[in-house]
Design a protein around this nucleic acid. Structure first.
Lengths: 259, 259
DNA sequence: CGTGCGCTTGAGACGCGTCAACGTGCGTGG
DNA sequence: CCACGCACGTTGACGCGTCTCAAGCGCACG
């Protein structure tokens, strides 16, 4: 269900897409690039585009010409280690910016590939820099975007120092928080998330073997905290999941059991 | 030797310090803040300051009023985990910027403490933002600084997925690269580094137990690759150290031995 | 209806953490 | 001056968490 082929209607909409028509505009990082302001610089507007599952948005060596905002679908960003292993550094769901680090570094720090059919808005780098020159609030928006990326990396760094169980719990909660509506854990005590990525990808993100990911899913399920139905996972006891995720209280050591 | 008390002469120099007199000026991120340009904004110049060992430059909750450049000594930045453990996310040696992430995020992502007597330049955040409004090249310098921080975090993320031996090898090489002159590994096949931090701090940085850090030092030493003399470590065989560090060739698995 | 891929589960191996003991160097107080 | 404490580093023995290897299951697809 994450990779239905784009319809002709969807594709025909690409050319006429405008931020001003976008329901996400007021919360969107790229909206400030739209309209006359961009045209003044002779830059193209944010452009809608569709990537099939497995297609790259960019690779590490690519020239940085644009960054992306996910409108639907899902994207993973990853490095290849010296021995050819894939190390996933981020999953990007609708609303997320992909490649913001390139605005600061000038080069892509990772490769990005669609893991489902994915609609994106492309934001030309030149427009971002042009707009930065003239608008304080836009500069702040760019810095804020980069800042959130830094915070994300800090959280990830922290995550990697937890046990397998804690990592998976935090991962699930992280996805729950991103979901529209619910406002995250503060909502109901129960909710469902769809995971567009494979178990192997979750492992490469959390630095766990696929088998360990699977085992932890089973463990959380038999503890009654989640219910697994393939790609869909019900988070039954969000409060307990939370305590698992925040290595919190008792233990001094990363290796000690939370339970 | 890393924590000799600041002399009266050193302290008296603080007030008259100017970037234009600084031997590091041409390569310094903050130099562009100095001089008439800053005064025009009514901002203070970069100010020299000295922190005793154990003194905090800032803590996570602090209001962001300035960031720092290390002139001598050493600083570590760290988080406290929910269970009170210290997680070190960076060591900052002379020439390094401390707190650049706060420019992007608006808040300090970590706390910073001197681990030796440390001279720093303080760069007022307000001057940074003021200067950004008027200078393209300064905006690029700021973005570049933030970008390097992102790259650093990416490398760190990668490091944490290696074996203890690889982590320590990479850590040592990282310090070697920072050293003046040598230009890093490209120089001679042999060099010495002073490590201003304790074994425990190295462990909290690399996510290893102190005992494991110690064991890996011993292991690399008995392999003839390094020679340990307390805080001073001779890197005898940089080439081999390099192969240890870059999980490189053969093995597919993080767990497999490099040797 | 086979073939392959993703997911799960089990058994054994291994890296690293924990606990504990010991040595060394340094500062303090007798 | 030496006795002592204490912080730090090193080394050994052992346990635990996760990886590896392997087998088996369900489901999509040719």
């Amino acid at each position: 269900m994450f990779d239905a082929a784009p319809t002709a209607a969807e594709l025909s909409n690409i050319s006429i897409f405008r931020c001003s028509n976008c329901m996400r505009a007021e919360s969107c990082f790229g909206a400030a690039l739209d309209g006359a302001i961009c045209n003044r610089h002779g830059e193209s507007l944010p452009v809608l585009d569709i990537f099939a599952r497995g297609k790259h948005l960019y690779s590490v060596d690519d020239k940085v010409e644009q960054i992306y905002i996910v409108r639907s679908g899902a994207v993973k960003t990853y490095h290849l280690t010296a021995d050819g292993e894939e190390q996933i550094v981020g999953f990007h769901l609708p609303g997320d910016v992909v490649g913001i680090d390139a605005v600061a570094t000038g080069t892509f720090q990772s490769s990005a590939v669609a893991i489902a059919v994915t609609e994106v808005c492309r934001l030309p780098i030149s427009a971002i820099h042009g707009r930065s020159a003239e608008s304080l609030s836009f500069r702040q928006a760019v810095l804020g975007g980069v800042g959130r990326e830094i915070q994300r990396l800090h959280r990830l760094l922290y995550l990697e120092r937890c046990t397998a169980e804690q990592r998976l719990a935090a991962f699930l909660l992280g996805h729950a928080r991103k979901l529209p509506k619910s406002g995250g854990v503060s909502g109901a005590a129960k909710m469902a998330v769809m995971l567009p990525m494979s178990r192997a990808d979750i492992g490469k993100f959390l630095d766990l073997a696929t088998e360990t990911v699977s085992r932890m899913f089973s463990k959380l399920q038999s503890a009654g905290i989640i219910a697994v139905h393939g790609a869909e996972v019900e988070l039954i006891d969000l409060a307990t999941l939370q305590t698992y995720a925040s290595a919190a209280q008792q233990t001094v050591s990363r290796r000690s059991k939370v339970h």
